[in-house]
Design a protein around this nucleic acid. Sequence first.
DNA 1: CTGGATCCTTTAAGATACTG
DNA 2: CAGTATCTTAAAGGATCCAG
Lengths: 116, 116
Amino acid sequence: MDTCENLMDALKFTQQVLGGKWKIHILNILYCGKKRFKELEREVVGISPKMLIKELKDLEALNIVNRQTFNTVPITVEYSLTTDAMSLEPLLTELLKWSVNFIKLQEDKEKEEVFK
Amino acid sequence: MDTCENLMDALKFTQQVLGGKWKIHILNILYCGKKRFKELEREVVGISPKMLIKELKDLEALNIVNRQTFNTVPITVEYSLTTDAMSLEPLLTELLKWSVNFIKLQEDKEKEEVFK
DNA sequence: CTGGATCCTTTAAGATACTG
DNA sequence: CAGTATCTTAAAGGATCCAG
């Protein structure tokens, strides 16, 4: 039974997982496999360490990412997605596909206007 | 060919469509059919007219919603989704389903912890 | 390398009263 | 009814320097 509260919770949760400037980007990279902090910092172009750590902590608290430390010198940390989070991947892929397609559609329509 | 820029554009676009506190909620309601301003204000519980009009304008600028006015007295305005936006609906539904399910999974895990 | 701490700027959002 | 205008607060994000 999907009550209205379920929906509201889901909405809120969705925003926590996908909201903000960086989360989708970070998730998209982690779907390729585990990454160290520095690797993420490089691949999420433009993010500051402060924001990266904040987003990762948020996602960890939501059980979306795992954080694993290794006692090397210097210390290394690996971030990966939880198995539960993995199940989001196809949806996110489809969502991005839709966006790409939507943008293309709109551009095509603008071109048509020119020929009118 | 999906270049990196395509992906970045899609990410940005996705955030414009789904980001913020209210957009997903508004879209979810509009999937049920066209609504007048006041109807939306009632159904998007807690939103102020200022936020509602802002979000609607944003979505209109992105070609996600249509705005149609009628010269009745008093004036009535109907908002509806563009046909292109309609194609997002199944994805959004799945996304919310995923969220509901994820939340439930996490709750179940916490209950299991109690029995350990 | 992996962050923490601090300060600062920019957006997002809320409340409320008002107009054609 | 369908918005505007104004004011205020809260949250997000950026820059930079520092520590284990």
